[in-house]
Write a protein that binds this DNA or RNA. Structure first.
Lengths: 147, 147
DNA sequence: CGCAAATATTTCGCATGCGAACTATTATCT
DNA sequence: AGATAATAGTTCGCATGCGAAATATTTGCG
C-alpha cells in the first residue's frame, strides 16, 4: 500500500537521524559533552554575542529547547550569558575561556568523526540535498494548509 | 570547509525528521494520540500478540523507550499487555477493542496526512532510499570501528 | 504620556530517546 | 540438580524536543 511506503520513508529518516545523533553523541562524550553542546560550541565560536533566538534559529530548535541546552552549558562554565545593553529582554551568549579551550581540544575528535561521512560521494550529497529540500517543502505545505 | 558540509547534512536530516514528526503529531492529535502511538497502533494491528522487543525492533527504538510508550497506551486502555504462557519473562501486546476501534477511526486522517508526501516522485523515493542506505552504512561503519 | 500589543526568554508539563542498573525467569553447563 | 549465564522487561537518570503559559521589557497607538 502507498501508506506503507510513506511510513517506511519516515522510519528510514528516523533511523538515519538517530545514527547521526549517536555518532555525534559518542564523539562528544569523549570531552564530556553532548552532541548538541558540540554543535552549539561551533555556532558560538563563529558568532560571539549571539542572541538565544538567533542561536535557536541556527540550530533549528525551538526557543525553549535551546534555552535548556544553553542553561546546562552556562552551569558547566562553557558559556557566558549576559543581558543585552540595548534590549534588556534579550541575552547574549559567548564562549567562556573554558568553552574556547574545549572547542580547540575537540579538533581531532571532530575530524575523525567526519571522516567516514566524507566517503559519501559529492554527487550523492547534492542529490540528497535536492530531495531533502523537496520533502521539506511538501511537509511544510501540509502544515500551512492545516493552519 | 568539509566539516561544515557534513554538519549541514546532519542538520538537514534533523529538520526533515522533525517536520515529519510534527506532521504525524498533528494528525495523531486529532484522535488524542501521539505520533508514535499511531505507529504502534499500526504495528499491533498487523502483528497481534507481538512481544515488546519485537515491537521495539519494528519501530526502531530501544526497549526502554518502547516500554514507556506501550505503558502509556495500556494506561489509556488501547493495548492489552499479558504475560506469555510459554515464557513468563515476556509480554504479549495486542490491541484492545478500544484500540481497534480507534485505529479504524484514524483512517481518513492517515490518508490525508500521507497525501502531500505522495507527491514525491517515485524516482526520488528510490533515490532517497538508496542514499539513506549508504549513509546508514557509513555511519554504522564508524560505530563498529570504535567498538 | 499611558496602556495595549509585541517581543525575548524562561518555566512547565509532557513525550520521546538512550544506556545502565535491576528484577524475574529461563537456558546452559558441569 | 545447582550454580551460572543469558534473556525479557521495567525503572532510573539524564538530555532532547515541543507548545503553552508566565515574566520582563520594549514598542506603538491614541
Amino acid at each position: 500500500m502507498q501508506e506503507q511506503r510513506i511510513l517506511e520513508i519516515f522510519q528510514s529518516y528516523r533511523e538515519v537521524h538517530q545514527a547521526f545523533f549517536q555518532l555525534m553523541t559518542k564523539a562528544a562524550s569523549k570531552h564530556k559533552l553532548t552532541a548538541l553542546q558540540l554543535i552549539v560550541l561551533r555556532v558560538l565560536r563563529e558568532h560571539p554575542e549571539i542572541r538565544l533566538s538567533d542561536l535557536a534559529e541556527k540550530v533549528k530548535l525551538g526557543n525553549s529547547t535551546t534555552s535548556g541546552i544553553v542553561d546546562r552549558m552556562v552551569k558547566a562554565g562553557l558559556v557566558d550569558r549576559e543581558r543585552t545593553e540595548t534590549d534588556r529582554r534579550a541575552m547574549t551568549l559567548t564562549l567562556s575561556e573554558k568553552g574556547m579551550a574545549l572547542w580547540r581540544e575537540t579538533e581531532a575528535t571532530r575530524l575523525h568523526m567526519m571522516r567516514s561521512l566524507l566517503e559519501l560521494p559529492e554527487e550523492d550529497q547534492r542529490e540528497l540535498d535536492r530531495i531533502q529540500q523537496k520533502v521539506l517543502h511538501l511537509l511544510r505545505n501540509y502544515r500551512e494548509e492545516e493552519a
